[in-house]
């Protein structure tokens, strides 16, 4: 089917950049990671002071601008918003806390898997479980309610802010916090990173690629379409990693990861549930932000806040594992998420 071809092309391009951005300077097994890169931007603008993860990642700006430009071009730029904004902000923050407990968004999970990191397999099981739970919520009548049509200016806020951020970043780089060691200091050249972001952003806009939607559609409507995109990401990244000699299979000593099985499982489980409740994975939220969806724009802000909370309070995973504070935060995230979902389901039933 014509549609499948698009999602395969998008997946292959994401997988290719996922592998090769590492060669060009990004951290190992982190050619692309939406959660990590949003976290780096949160650090870059000083929302948290974890010195090893601060950088204005041009890829994120590229994702949003790629989606923005293509959606303007193909008439899919539609400005909407006002569907449970505060809940979306909160769930965006919780999604981020879960991702940083695992050390990566679902996209990085696929890239880690394609580099032989078996901890990502544990994460994948958790993610699938979370998507399954979120899908049950939807079946039980969970909905954050319809959005409204808003004036065009609302949809320009996120792309506009990204443009300002980028212009400031290239003209006055010293005003931002910037890592000199650790993952935040491993960077692909700015224009290459931006270009990769634009390619991934526009192709994801066109194909609706979504790591959460892939499994959700499989569970809910027995539709394989988006899952084919995931297989494409994995395949391209696997081939790329083998070419680059960046493949070693096992659990221990994998780059920017930990072997705390339970918390890898639960961290991405929390991402799975919140992603289904929010209508898409972290990458998809950025794409929707570019397309004029201000609810997703607010989720993006929620993700920035979640990253700040995560690093200011030591909730993020590290190669040593997930500390007590992070474990409590993940459990707390589940409690809040289930409370919100449960309340909405009960109210909608009445």
């Amino acid at each position: 089917m014509h549609n499948n071809r698009l999602v395969v092309i998008a997946g292959l391009v994401v997988g290719f950049f996922g592998a090769f951005l590492v060669l060009w300077g990004n951290p190992l097994n982190m050619g692309i990671c939406v959660a990590c890169f949003v976290r780096d931007i949160a650090g870059g603008i000083g929302l948290h002071r974890a010195e090893i993860v601060q950088y204005i990642r041009p890829e994120i700006i590229g994702f949003i601008w790629g989606a923005f430009l293509l959606s303007i071009f193909n008439g899919e730029f539609k400005v909407r918003g006002g569907s449970a904004p505060l809940i979306r902000f909160l769930l965006g923050a919780i999604m981020m806390i879960g991702a940083l407990a695992f050390l990566g968004c679902p996209l990085r999970m696929i890239l880690r898997l394609a580099a032989g990191d078996l901890n990502a397999l544990v994460g994948f099981l958790g993610f699938s479980g979370g998507i399954w739970v979120g899908s049950q919520f939807l079946k039980m009548g969970f909905s954050l309610g319809p959005s409204q049509v808003l004036g065009k200016i609302n949809g320009l806020i996120i792309p506009g802010l990204m443009l300002i951020l980028f212009v400031l970043f290239i003209s006055l780089p010293d005003i931002f916090f910037s890592s000199t060691e650790g993952p935040g200091s491993s960077r692909a050249p700015i224009l290459l990173a931006l270009g990769a972001g634009l390619a991934v952003g526009s192709l994801s806009q066109r194909s609706r690629l979504c790591t959460a939607g892939a499994l959700r559609d499989l569970f809910l409507i027995k539709n394989l379409h988006l899952f084919i995109g995931i297989i494409a990401i994995f395949s391209a990244a696997l081939v790329g990693n083998l070419i680059l000699g960046n493949f070693s299979i096992g659990f221990a000593d994998q780059p920017v990861s930990h072997t705390d099985y339970l918390w890898n499982f639960l961290g991405l489980g929390l991402v799975g549930i919140t992603a289904v409740m929010l209508g898409g994975c972290p990458l998809r939220q950025l794409i929707l932000s570019g397309e004029g969806n201000t609810d997703s724009g607010l989720i993006f802000f929620g993700m920035l806040a979640g990253a700040a909370i995560s690093h200011n309070f030591g909730l993020a995973g590290s190669p040593g594992g997930l500390g007590m504070a992070g474990q409590i935060a993940v459990i707390g995230g589940f409690i809040i998420t289930f409370s919100i979902a449960g309340t909405i389901i009960i109210v909608n039933k009445k």
């Binding site: 569907s83 939807l138 909905s143 319809p146 959005s147 809910l220 409507i221 209508g279 898409g280």
Partner: peptide
């Protein structure tokens, strides 16, 4: 299904 997030439109249709 106007204004609803993914996958609610297709879910309602499938039902």
């Amino acid at each position: 299904t106007r204004g609803l997030s993914c996958p609610e439109p297709v879910l309602k249709t499938r039902q």
